[in-house]
């Protein structure tokens, strides 16, 4: 059973604490996503699990074994880098088989494993090319292939899709999910993109300045965010969040309502405001309403909703969908 356990892991660079004490268990076969804004420590945490960085304090267990002081190559992990990190002077075949040849495996075994991985990733026809001659998506697959042939217990993926264009990214999200299902391996995936987190994860770990903000399934985080930070991070467009008098009027420190949980009416409602801007996305329309007593509220309505700059509209929250944080 390949679980990954972090126990009070801390990391500081000089006087700066990057990771401020993290306890986390990732279950066998889980697709776990670390998400958070840049600088929150998610990549550092992944690198600590991989062994590329050493934790200042705390222990890491993989598969029930303490690997805190272990070499990266002995931890049973494989990693896919944001830049793919393919060796430019080696062919695809040599890239994928590099680790196996370092381990002095017999040539025919290496060949067999590389061929199998190439088959699974539809790379067979590219095996003799150098990385330079590949497209972004193909390089991405080679990087995954290189991870696969090591038969790792845990896959570590560091923003693997951020160098791809939007269309390819959507396609790779599905391919990665398929791969995870097929291999059944534990995967830890780092991203700053909440869409990737929501669409792929079994478990999302939201990190904020070196601490875990919340752990849960995607819908769990969407429905029950524990803090304004998580509430604002998960979901698009962002949740409307209000401090000060607006929140005080609701009897809390921060009051939040998601754009999709506000209804608009021309005649009556809770807040009266004037339309500042309208974005037509096709299926949906996003309305930016300026309400004098609270500032701006963003509202998502269906695509056929008609509104124009300067219109006066009423907005009301959907009952039971409001969030009050203290």
């Amino acid at each position: 059973m390949t679980s990954v356990k972090l126990k009070s892991v801390k990391k500081s660079f000089g006087a700066v604490d990057i990771i401020k004490g993290i306890d986390l268990t990732i279950e066998d076969g889980e697709f776990c996503v670390f998400v958070g804004p840049s600088g929150c420590g998610k990549s550092t945490l992944l690198r600590i699990i991989s062994g590329l960085e050493e934790a200042t304090e705390g222990t890491i267990e993989i598969d029930g074994r303490d690997v805190t002081g272990e070499e990266p190559s002995k931890r049973g992990i494989a990693m896919v880098f944001q830049s793919y990190a393919l060796y430019p002077h080696l062919t695809v075949r040599e890239n994928v088989g590099f680790g196996l040849s370092l381990a002095k495996l017999p040539k025919d075994v290496i060949r067999q494993k590389v061929d199998a991985a190439a088959e699974a990733l539809q790379l067979t026809h590219l095996l003799d090319r150098k990385p330079k001659a590949l497209s972004g998506g193909q390089r991405q697959r080679v990087a995954i292939g290189r991870a696969m042939v090591r038969d790792p217990k845990v896959f570590l993926l560091d923003e693997p899709l951020s160098n791809l264009d939007a269309a390819l990214r959507a396609q790779m999200r599905i391919e990665l999910t398929d791969l995870h299902r097929k291999l059944g391996a534990t995967m830890i995936y780092v991203t700053h993109d909440q869409v990737e987190a929501m669409t792929m994860a079994d478990k999302i770990v939201v990190l904020n300045s070196g601490r875990i903000e919340q752990v849960g399934s995607p819908m769990d985080l969407y429905n029950n965010p524990v803090s304004p930070f998580v509430a604002g991070f998960i979901g698009s467009p962002k949740m409307n969040l209000y401090d000060g008098p607006v929140a005080a009027a609701q009897g809390c420190k921060t009051y939040g309502i998601r754009p999709e949980h506000v209804v608009l009416s021309a005649t009556n409602g809770t807040w009266k405001g004037s339309v500042r801007h309208v974005e037509h996305l096709g299926a949906d329309t996003v309305v930016y309403l300026v309400v004098p007593e609270m500032g701006e509220i963003v509202v998502r309505v269906s695509g056929d909703f008609k509104a124009a700059h300067g219109d006066i509209l009423w907005a009301s929250p959907v009952a039971g969908r409001e969030f009050r944080f203290n």
């Binding site: 190559s73 494989a78 990190a85 060796y87």
Partner: peptide, 26 residues
């Protein structure tokens, strides 16, 4: 990029192998 060294570390390369098999050819 340092990622190349790190990819080699994860692939199990010792320091001399990272240098002679990955860096020096580049």
């Amino acid at each position: 990029p340092r990622d190349l060294d790190e990819a080699a570390i994860i692939d199990g390369a010792k320091p001399w192998a990272i240098f002679f098999k990955v860096i020096l050819p580049l």
